[in-house]
Design a protein around this nucleic acid. Sequence first.
RNA 1: GUGCCCGUAGCUCAAUCGGAUAGAGCACCAGCCUUCUAAGCUGGGGGUUACAGGUUCGAUUCCUGUCGGGCACGCCA
Length: 558
Amino acid sequence: MSVVLNFRSHLSDLFAQAVRIVAPEVTEIDIVIERPKHVQHGDYACNLAMQLARLLRKAPNEIARSLITALPTSHVVEKVEIAGAGFINIFITVAAKQNVVHGVLRAGMGYGHIHLGAGRKLQVEFVSANPTGPLHVGHGRGAAVGDCLCRVLQAAGWNVTREFYYNDAGVQIDNLAISVQLRCMGISPDDLSWPENGYRGEYIADVARAYMAQEMVEADDQHVQASGDIGDLRAIRSFSVAYLRSEQDLDLRAFGVNFDVYSLESALYTDGKVEETVNRLIASGYTYEQDNALWLRTTDFGDDKDRVMRKSDGSYTYFVPDVAYHLDKWRRGFVRVINEQGADHHSTITRVRAGLQALDAGIPPDWPDYVLHQMVTVLRNGEEVKISKRAGSYVTLRDLIDEVGCDATRFFLAARHPDSQLVFDIDLAKSKSNENPVYYIQYAHARICSVLGQWKGDIAELHRANVSVLDSENERALLQHLIDYPQVIESAAKDLAPHLIAFFLKDLAADLHGYYNATRFLVEDEDIKLARLALIAAVAQVMRNGLALLGVSAPAKM
RNA sequence: GUGCCCGUAGCUCAAUCGGAUAGAGCACCAGCCUUCUAAGCUGGGGGUUACAGGUUCGAUUCCUGUCGGGCACGCCA
């Protein structure tokens, strides 16, 4: 008897065959196999009969009966029932469910990996903070969501590239260079001569000190030696950018986020890609000159007004290198690109897509994809920590990692739907108590490790456990969770919603704690003992796999 | 004013391309440690899914409007 690990796709296949017999004229129909909320509705449910009712002009119940008759037999199906308005409820045999324990133990770290992406090239661009200051909580959310998304998509079979884009060529960088230069000259933001657009944060003084001390900084691909020459704005500029990039890289590394590719806006200029993009846009006929500037008719592609490409001073707006950058992504062969950004950048979506359409390069109109996360507010001692752009003060990612820890910070930032505003309660994230979901999950894993450690047996023995004795309510619930795990990865990957992993793990941990309290594992009966240990070993494996997707550790002891 | 996102238990949040009786945690109440980690478990109360319509077998989910919160509306990024 073969072990079926993915019941949903197995059932989907069975129903597809049934449809070919019952309604051969219907060729295009989505077969939805869902998990009912209530146990009396079986393990899986199919609404096919209701979907077909209108097409076939027959009563759903009648269609359901025909479908069941036409359904090929399967050793994993215990029985099927018609219920409600025409749902077909499917009950899986207990033996098939119990076998998932062996499936998980055999697959190990690979359990839950699916082939949705089929090895296709996908790129996620995230964080992409300007090198003008330290990363703050908002960037942290982008880093956590983006990185977890990458891990989920990899588990779903995509060939994922993590990419960071530095806007190191615009007006903001000029402001940065001037701010550092002023600090080098001993002028502070309190001074009346401090420019309106200057950066006021204390970190600017750190950059200035390092520059004056002729320090050397390394940022990924470059080494920059400070000359200490106050008059050399270009030198100050490149040193400042390298310095802040290097700081950001350290923060990200401490956060467990590693990028495969760093792209620099400045490189798009030096490589001629910006110029090429401009020429192509002009050639496409969507541009025009007005008010001494060059415009792109983005309104032809759904924008609410046309956008300036080349300013009256001759330089380009940020949006031109953005288009050039995305054309480059397309040429690098990414079938799918996902840009994870703060929602305050949402207006760029229409613009970038419009620019790409104007290129007439065969790029799909809805390419690239976007995941936008909403704002993060930070709570300390029950009060909101206000950010002050004027004073340049805010809660940095580094502060959070130092104070709260990497695990809790990642979990809190990734465990909510990106679309909803997030309140980061520092005291809650720090608390080592039952209020903290991170520890709740990790504790479940540690408890299992502790039991397995006291057993002192060889894990390989568990592969031979007779799992047919696993039939209590707690055991059934845990088996079902193990079975659901690959499906959760599929949902998270399809919906670009990594927070689903966190909720799954909370549920799994709750069931494990319940089981732990209700059951003794190290009992006399060898069969029962091995079966129970095999089950919790499989649970621990899935917890490790799931936590790995969040980038959160799975400690064996707490 | 226009566009996008959000509105679910007192609080923080879920809800499987529209599915069957909307779920967790916290807080509150009552219990469980001489037995594998009590950072845990068991039970209890708590809802007109902001509001009003519409679409259909069926709506927290889709559409329209109203109210409330956030963000964006630059030749900044």
